[in-house]
Computed example of a mutant assay.
Amino acid sequence: MKKEDTHRFETKAIHSGYDPKEHLDSLTPPIYQTSTFTFPSIEQGSKRFAGSEDGYIYSRLTNPTVTVLEERMAQLEEGEAALAFASGMAAVSAVLMNVTKANDHILCSQGVYGCTFGLLQLLKEKYNIDYTLSQLATAEDITSNIRENTTCIYIETPINPTMKLIDLQLVANLAKEKGIKVVVDNTFSTPYLQKPLKLGCDLVVHSATKYIGGHGDVIGGIVVGDLKVISEIKKTTQKDIGGVISPFDAWLLIRGIKTLAVRMERHCETAEVVARQLKNHSKVKKVYYPGHQSQSDHDVMTKQMKKAGGLLSFELSGTYEETIKVVDKLKLIKIAVSLGDAETLIQHPASMTHAVVPEDIRKRMGISNQLLRLSIGLEAWEDIWGDLEQALNAI
């Protein structure tokens, strides 16, 4: 890890982790599109393999382009070190494998991404690593669900797709008393809006595919934490399982990060307007958006987030068939399961991202058949709302 960058977020997003003098004065980080690196001598190659000398060996282990991405993300999350992966799920898998062993227990927020839920099921079936879904809303919620074999508390906040929030400082304080690691999926907020490590959490994971990349053209994952833990993951799970990111994909994420701050400002600004318009429409039963003062956990948002984010969900008052009709009537807004892109995207969680979750658990998570998730893009808010309005008025 290089010396801490003391610049502000917007400046770090453009400059941190990269010195042109180290790369033939290239303004933009080069793409080191190579699988392996040569050694001047056997002696030097041996030293690098032994870890007694810094240097590159093989791109599954380290790569100069990937290093720039990792150092930049560590600076933005204000962590000691970071690791880049081929996908968000590769990052999540690596972390959960690091903090658990057979017969351990994971305490999770009530809602998690569908593939994360699938991974939890796999860990339970193959390695008897049990998990519990909890609201994590109060100290009692948290402590009553902690077992002797709980080694990890895994949190999404805002939760996908209900946008519920978890008080990270509360969880971190209680977990620290018992020596339990707290892992936070910070994909929805990005380090621009929320910094879990500064609130006492241990590890942050991202699907960098989303807001970090920001353009819908790359798949990637990030883990940030203290140097010791990140080094352990790097030397074991990442090296031996091999879910590493390619240099070109790392380069695309570096490019995306440069505009992260300005994009997040626009996403948040438009989401606030669209959420307000949806709330006032007669066909909408409820809007889930942390920026609404009427939302029960609004105080948590003001305490730990800079703004409420660019995602919202809304539930229609009609039938499932009418819900699907609304989505199919959209013209500008695209039906897709990702988020954080320049384009506004909509999806139906019950039949898409959370289809793998059994119906009874989906209902406990608050995911009804009338719930839709909207990722606000960078288009004019008037055009986004105009498309939603015409579709809602069609039922």
Rank of each mutant, 00 (worst) to 15 (best):
T190N: 10
G340I: 01
G221Y: 11
T209I: 00
V356E: 09
S338E: 14
I159K: 14
K279Y: 05
R72Q: 15
P196T: 12
R276Q: 05
D240V: 13
W385G: 03
I159N: 01
Y289H: 02
G366C: 06
E140S: 14
M97R: 15
A139E: 15
D240N: 15
K307P: 00
L120I: 05
T6N: 12
W251D: 03
M163Y: 03
T190Q: 06
T138V: 04
A84I: 05
K126N: 10
A271S: 11
V326H: 06
T65A: 13
L193H: 08
D54R: 13
M163G: 01
H105G: 11
K279D: 09
A261K: 06
T302M: 12
D141V: 11
P358V: 07
E156F: 07
H281P: 03
D360V: 08
L174M: 11
G242F: 05
T187C: 09
K285E: 12
E269S: 14
L123K: 11
S87P: 08
Q169F: 02
R364L: 11
S59R: 10
Q194D: 05
H215G: 01
T132K: 09
I395V: 14
C201R: 01
I14S: 01
Q295T: 06
T28W: 05
A355S: 09
V68G: 07
E78W: 02
Q169C: 12
R266L: 13
A86L: 12
R276I: 00
G309C: 09
G214E: 00
L330D: 11
Y289A: 00
S52L: 07
L197R: 02
E379R: 02
G111I: 05
L253C: 14
T150H: 08
